[in-house]
Write a protein that binds this DNA or RNA. Structure first.
Ligand code: SF4
Ligand code: SF4
Lengths: 144, 144
DNA sequence: AATAAACATGTATTTTGTATACATGTTTAT
DNA sequence: ATAAACATGTATACAAAATACATGTTTATT
């Protein structure tokens, strides 16, 4: 049980971009350098985030990316849920492929579901804004 | 983000074995047939559970497995935690391999940790006993 | 003593998903 | 025209999980 690096990278991109002042653009190059992630990966993640309409991209020279909405409107829980799309967790969570005979009477599956709800309930209590409250500290760690 | 089939299989084995009356033995064959899981897989899981001292095995003809402790003493949360051992979740959760520069000031990692705690808190409220409360229903579903 | 039914254990293969890399295209300021 | 940026599709590598195979040991039964 663990999250995809991808999910983390997406959050990192948002943390970086969210810290930029209003119309200032962040670039993939910058981001890849700060976190020492290859540009390829950042590119992919950025692409995804643009499609999700969380960030906007400006092409061409002096282009870059910026937030498509204010950080306080980006919910961490919802974001993680989308990025980790396939919450099958167990066979029976997907009716299509489920073959478990006891499924109709299984308490375990309800228990796991409740646990999952609790997991996201915590995440949903935070927005991107909460993750960049200590801007100066982060900026320093990033060497900016 | 999803659990290993292995983890589920282990729970299934325990659900089945926990339903047997006191000194009655369950066999790998039986279990593999009820759930339509290959004997190989069940064998492996059983082996693991014996090592974890949750079930005992009796070798030789007329052998089988039985609970090593009463169902109400087997905590679902602790069990899942053990079975899913590697809770790295993200790079920074493992100090050894962590390279994320913002780690010392990152709020996200705390948020995720809190979410994980909430997840297990729910699971820890249940024991194997809770999973087999509806014995008759389960027995029927299993075709016993 | 032989046999069969059960668990024990190590190893090998297949499959899947993730992570990573490569190549090429498009846009736009200079 | 060029260079700096994003866009996008594809391919490769790697690791973990799922699955399968093979062989060994124990013990009740006959
Ligand atoms: S045992 Fe319960 S949780 Fe597991 S697959 Fe079957 S129905 Fe789902
Ligand atoms: S961004 Fe935060 S959560 Fe992600 S790896 Fe870095 S420290 Fe951990």
């Amino acid at each position: 049980m663990n999250l995809k690096k991808y999910t983390d990278y997406a959050l990192r991109v948002l943390i970086f971009t969210g810290m930029k002042s209003d119309q200032e653009l962040a670039t993939i190059k910058e981001i890849s350098e700060v976190y020492t992630i290859s540009q390829e990966h950042v590119r992919k993640v950025v692409h995804e985030l643009v499609k999700m309409e969380l960030i906007e991209s400006v092409r061409g020279r002096h282009g870059g990316i910026r937030m498509a909405k204010p950080p306080e409107e980006i919910n961490v829980g919802r974001l993680v849920r989308q990025l980790e799309a396939d919450f099958v967790i167990l066979e029976c969570f997907d009716k299509g492929t489920n073959h478990c005979v006891i499924s109709p009477g299984c308490t375990l599956k309800h228990v796991l579901n409740r646990a999952l709800v609790a997991f996201f309930k915590v995440l949903e209590a935070y927005t991107l804004k909460d993750l960049i409250k200590n801007e100066e500290e982060l900026r320093e760690l990033m060497g900016l």
